[in-house]
């Protein structure tokens, strides 16, 4: 379960940074880049609190 949460969090971080590079390289539009970043934020904050700083 923890691994699944961590993988989802990692996906959230990837969705935060990769779309900006794709937009910079003109592969996607600004709107798509912004939606993907929002999806990344949701994934990160929905999963990271359940495994970060937990012993």
């Amino acid at each position: 379960m923890k691994l699944l949460l961590q993988l989802t969090s990692a996906l959230g971080l990837l969705l935060t940074i990769i779309p900006s590079l794709l937009y910079f390289a003109t592969y996607i539009s600004l709107a798509v880049h912004q939606y993907l970043m929002l999806a990344g934020a949701i994934l990160w904050f929905a999963t990271a609190p359940f495994w970060m700083n937990k012993k």
Binding site: L13, S20, A41, W44, F45, A48
Partner: peptide, 18 residues
Amino acid sequence: ANIAAPWMILVFIAAGFA
């Protein structure tokens, strides 16, 4: 702060790139 930090710095970088 711990939870938010990695995401925040990536948003700064991404926004700068965009």
